[in-house]
Design a binder for these strands. Structure first.
Length: 577
RNA sequence: GCCCCCGUAGCUCAAUGGACAGAGCAAUGCCCUUCUAAGGCAAAGAUGCAAGUUCGAUUCCUGCCGGGGGCACCA
């Protein structure tokens, strides 16, 4: 946590100067420490002197020089130099000795470098994946699943008590459609217990097409859902069987992706709280009942359309269940944050939901986060729609990527035994798939592109894994004994790698705080390119004894950080590929 | 019509209001008798338009153009 250290030092320096009467009284502005983009500008930088200059209307360079003097004198062990760059940037160059000590720290920590107890067991809930029952999982849910599980890992690593909840879409009018479709096409399904998910989808799509021609089918679907909600025995039975079948399919995907949840409650779980939910909202005067018997929460003061929580036929909606879910979660876990990993398209819904939850006094608005991401669009740049049967099946995608990985290994490394190859293809293929989603921050919609998904070069998981494998290969040939003399670690290439390694804890924290996992992927990619440059230029096995030992230590330290970093992304590491 | 997201190199992406806008793919030229060439090195290439705030704008404000999504009885 060098960033925090530097922040503290700056604060102290400013206070010292103020005590000496150097600056007139002013509030210390927010101190921001950055990682500069290139080597020339040092290892960390801040433009705090500019901020101060703005407040006290003095020359930034002058202030920067005074501050820099203070800083270097305060920690000669930490900084090699503290340099002022135009117009008011202060660059910190970490000292060689400090870096040499850091490699020992990293090696001491073995497999957990960067794990911190910032969370102190405070709870964070992550709501992710949440596919709709009775439909195949598609790429959109895959994004939520992958991003959600990474954010889960990050918070866990920081010491939070994290609860991952797969909030299944297993309730609502869409289920009314499913039940109606089943009843309509019953003759095609001799035994409900043998129904497959693809058959479910088939009749679902077929029924939706029919709705377009005869809109009265929509009403039938609604009433089937109402019956389900009211406890109709037949509908409950259909629901139970279809739900169970779907869950089995989902579990297969979660298993291959190596994704776990603490809770899989689903929307249906909250059925029993919904009447109370509506009554409660009415009683508090937050919700009102319209003349047609529907119930809404007015959100005009937030410039939002009202949130409907009960339909005129008495049935409940998405919003009702989500409110009940929040209330349940707060009561049971008292989370610091609830993070919803859901696509952009639901932005309005979450705005409504979060404001409603605050109005109802369940939880404050700023503890609720919609971690949104761009939609995955089809090749025609239009939204993929399950209803219309246009989607990319997650199952299919996973198989295809793993298959390609297998083929690639066969080409690149034909001597690798079949069994190892097959294990490696899973790690590489699924890693590539995950990395592709995690390395992007922007909320731009993504046009689904097979070529990109299958790109195993450059900034991709296979590149990171390749780097890791090569390091492991060296460690197999010359075992690292743990003994080395850090003072032999002094080449620029090696020191730059150590600098990078010491950033790791800061990067993990920043990624979690800002929900920007691509900070972490960018970091790992840059580290990998440093390392590739390193073993291209500097021999390890053939180096002189002390140099060899210290380089082995460096490699060992890098593998520790790599392993931690990749695991946080949900990517496993491997020994050979 | 109203609201939200987005517009950066030929393509896909990066950049808490900061330094010279970073990468990868594709295309060009080098490097496998040396720890896995899924690699390394070199050169080339970009902020939709117009004003504004600022010492400083890809980032913030306003307008326009372009793409996508959403707007109570779906989730």
């Amino acid at each position: 946590m060098i960033k925090e250290k530097i922040k503290q030092l700056i604060k102290n320096s400013i206070k010292n100067l103020q005590n000496e009467g150097k600056f007139i009284e002013f509030e210390i502005p927010e101190i921001v420490v950055e990682y500069p983009k290139d080597k020339q500008h040092g290892d960390y930088s801040t433009n705090i002197s500019l901020q101060i200059a703005k407040i006290i209307k003095k020359k930034p360079l002058e202030i920067a020089n005074i501050l820099a003097d203070q800083l270097i004198n305060s920690r000669r062990d930490l900084f090699e130099k503290v340099e002022v760059a135009a117009p008011g940037f202060i660059n910190f160059f970490i000292s060689k000795e400090y870096l040499q000590r850091q490699i020992k720290e990293i090696l001491k920590q073995k497999e957990k470098f960067g794990g911190q107890n910032i969370g102190k067991n405070r709870a964070v809930m992550v709501d992710y994946s949440s596919p709709n029952v009775a439909k195949p999982m598609h790429v959109g849910h895959l994004r939520s699943t992958i991003i959600g599980s990474a954010i889960y890992n990050l918070y866990k690593f920081l010491g939070y008590k994290v609860i991952g909840d797969n909030h299944l879409g297993d309730w609502g009018t869409q289920f009314g459609i499913m039940i109606s479709a089943y009843k309509k096409y019953k003759s095609e399904i001799p035994n409900l217990k043998d129904i497959t998910v693809s058959k479910m989808l088939d009749i679902y799509v077929k029924f939706n097409k029919e709705i377009k021609n005869s809109p009265e089918l929509q009403d039938i679907a609604k009433s089937e859902f109402k019956k389900l909600e009211d406890g109709d025995r037949e509908n409950r039975k259909i629901w139970r069987i279809i739900r169970g079948k779907s869950l089995k399919e989902f579990d297969k995907i979660y298993k291959i992706l190596d994704i776990k949840f603490d809770l899989v409650l689903g929307e249906s779980f909250y059925g029993k709280y919904l009447i109370e939910e509506i009554r409660n909202a009415l009683k508090k005067g937050i919700a009102v009942r319209n003349s047609d018997r529907s119930v809404i929460i007015n959100l005009e003061k937030f410039n939002l359309p009202p949130c409907l929580i009960q339909k005129s036929d008495g049935a409940t909606l998405y919003g009702t269940r989500d409110l009940a879910t929040i209330r349940y979660r707060v009561k049971k876990y008292d989370p610091d944050k609830i993070i919803y990993v859901v696509g952009n398209e639901q932005a309005l819904h979450f705005e409504q939901l979060f404001h409603s939850a605050e109005l109802l006094d369940y939880i404050s608005y700023d503890k609720l986060y919609h971690m949104k991401f761009g939609l995955v669009l089809g090749e025609n740049r239009k939204k993929l729609s399950t209803r219309e049967g246009r989607f990319i099946n997650a199952d299919h995608l996973i198989n295809k990527v793993v298959e390609l990985a297998n083929k690639t290994i066969k080409e690149k490394n034909p001597s690798l035994p079949k069994k190892i190859r097959e294990e490696a293809s899973k790690v590489i293929g699924i890693g590539a798939l995950k990395y592709n989603d995690l390395s992007q921050n922007r909320q731009t919609n993504i046009v689904f592109d097979w070529n990109k998904m299958m790109n195993f070069k450059g900034n991709s998981a296979p590149y990171l894994l390749y780097t890791y494998v090569r390091l492991k290969s060296i460690l197999r040939k010359a075992k690292f004994s743990g003994k080395f003399k850090p003072e032999f670690l002094e080449g620029e290439i090696e020191l730059n790698i150590i600098k990078k390694l010491t950033n790791f804890p800061d990067i993990v924290k920043d990624s979690a705080d800002s929900f920007q996992i691509n900070n972490l992927t960018d970091y790992l990619y840059l580290l990998a390119s440093f390392v590739n440059n390193f073993y291209e230029k500097l021999p390890v096995l053939k180096a002189e004894k002390e140099i060899k030992l210290v380089r082995l230590a460096l490699i060992k330290a890098v593998t520790i950080v790599f392993k931690n970093g990749l695991n946080l992304l949900g990517i496993k590491t491997l020994e050979k590929m």
